[in-house]
Each structure stands twice: as C-alpha cells, then as structure tokens.
C-alpha cells in the first residue's frame, strides 16, 4: 500500500520534472526560437476563426470600465504565460504584435473561448462571455496596441 503511494508520488514528480526539463532544453535552444514556434502556432490559429466569429462586435465597446476590468482579468488569468506586460514568456507568445492588433475583437473572443488546447493555450469558456469581452477590450486598448510594431513581429 505504502509502496503504491510512493510509486504514484514518484510518478507525479517525474512527470513534473520531465515537463520542466523539457522546458529547460527548449530554454537552452534559445527563448527566441521557442517564442517563434509558440507565436507561429498561436497566431496561425487566429486565421482559423470562422467568418461569423470574426465579424462579431464587442458588446462592451462603449463600456468605460471594460479596459480596467479586462486588465485585472489579464493579470489574474493570462499574465503567468503571456507576461505581466503581455510581451510574451516561456510558455506563450507576445500579444503586443501586429497579428493581435489587426485581429478583429470577434477573432480574439473566438480564440479566448476555444483556446489552442493542443498548444498549451487553455479554453477560457469558463469565464462568462462579458469577462472575455472585457479581456478583448484590454487587448485592443492603446496600452497594448500602441506597443505593437506595424509589421509582422513573429520573427525572432
């Protein structure tokens, strides 16, 4: 009995360590390379949004508090992977890029809702729709958009 528990705990540790060591290997190859792959995969997903989703307007477009609330939601749920300043991290790409700037609110909402689950980005459908739209408002706010370069920024 105790052996089984120890074996399971060891298994869980190995699982965690293997994941972290895989990340460390990636880190040795260069954070830029990793970010390039993450970026390419995630930005490519933006192009898969169906037309109906692309054309959806943000119902909170005129809500004066939406950007502030969206920023808090970003800090709570997104900053761990995308970085506190949305410039990207080890796990997820920068959001201060032209792909995000040029994406419609509907496209960003669609990506948030569905995630890119095969590429580590979870689906955020557990956040109520208005909170996802608040996040979109923050991603489209001057704080994020002005920092995005005019040209494609996926190149490392």
């Amino acid at each position: 009995m105790k052996l089984v528990i120890v074996a399971l705990l060891l298994g869980a540790m190995l699982l965690a360590i293997s994941q972290s060591s895989a990340n460390s290997v990636s880190a040795r190859r260069g954070l830029n390379n990793l970010q390039f792959h993450l970026s390419a995969d995630t930005y490519a997903e933006l192009r898969k949004a169906p037309e109906k989703a692309v054309n959806r307007a943000n119902p909170l477009e005129n809500d004066p508090e939406a950007v502030t609330a969206g920023k808090l939601l970003f800090e709570d749920h997104c900053a761990e992977c995308h970085g506190d300043d949305a410039k990207g991290g080890r796990k997820a790409p920068s959001l201060r890029v032209s792909e995000v700037r040029n994406a419609t609110p509907g496209t960003l909402f669609w990506l948030l809702t569905n995630g890119v689950v095969r590429k580590k980005m979870p689906a955020w459908s557990k956040l109520p729709e208005p909170q996802r739209w608040q996040l979109v408002r923050f991603l489209k706010s001057p704080e994020i958009v002005r920092a995005a370069p005019a040209d494609n920024a996926t190149n490392p």
Binding site: L72, L73, P128, E129, P130, Q131
Partner: peptide
C-alpha cells in the same frame, strides 16, 4: 455567478 461582468477594482464581496 451572481454577476457576469468583472468589476474594475479588486473586491472580496463583488457579485462576480
């Protein structure tokens, strides 16, 4: 949730 929109400030007793 009791509210669907997030509040613009952090609060323990917000309805969301």
């Amino acid at each position: 949730p009791l509210a669907l929109k997030a509040s613009a400030k952090r609060c323990n007793f917000c309805r969301q």
